[in-house]
């Protein structure tokens, strides 16, 4: 954060946080996709640290919004149990794979899948 003034950095963090929080609550995820560029591009945080810090920012946000969805009866518990089990197992596999395969190529595939899913959602509602 050496290149920008403290006041400016604080404003960026507050404004960016507001957007990321809203996205994460409204879409039930995706806040990290906002926080990462906020940290790397605007606050000049080193990439590895930016990823790690993003998780620490998104966790409390997910707890808050997750509680709202849960108490309003929006999260189906049987599906949550099955998918959640898969996420935990997958998370371990992903963390191991991270150091073994080129994730630049995977990232590009991931972005394309995102765009295609988005188009399907817009077209088939």
């Amino acid at each position: 954060m050496a290149e920008i003034s403290k006041k400016k950095a604080l404003l960026i963090m507050l404004a960016g946080g507001a957007v990321a929080g809203f996205v994460n609550g409204f879409f039930g995820g995706g806040g990290g996709m906002i926080v990462i560029p906020l940290l790397t591009a605007l606050l000049k945080t080193e990439k590895k640290k930016a990823h790690a810090t993003t998780i620490a920012i998104i966790l409390p946000l997910s707890l808050i919004s997750g509680a709202v969805y849960l108490f309003k009866g929006a999260a189906k518990l049987d599906i949550l149990a099955a998918a959640g089990g898969g996420v935990i197992a997958g998370g371990i596999i992903g963390a191991i794979l991270l150091n073994k395969i080129s994730n630049e190529k995977i990232a590009v595939i991931f972005y394309i899948v995102m765009i295609v899913s988005g188009i399907s959602l817009v077209l088939f509602r």
């Binding site: 946080g17 990321a20 609550g25 409204f26 806040g31 946000l61 919004s65």
Partner: peptide, 13 residues
């Protein structure tokens, strides 16, 4: 970041 984000994350939900 959390200072503003906690509020908007509840509002968004």
């Amino acid at each position: 970041i959390l200072a503003s984000a906690v509020l908007t994350s509840a509002a968004g939900a």
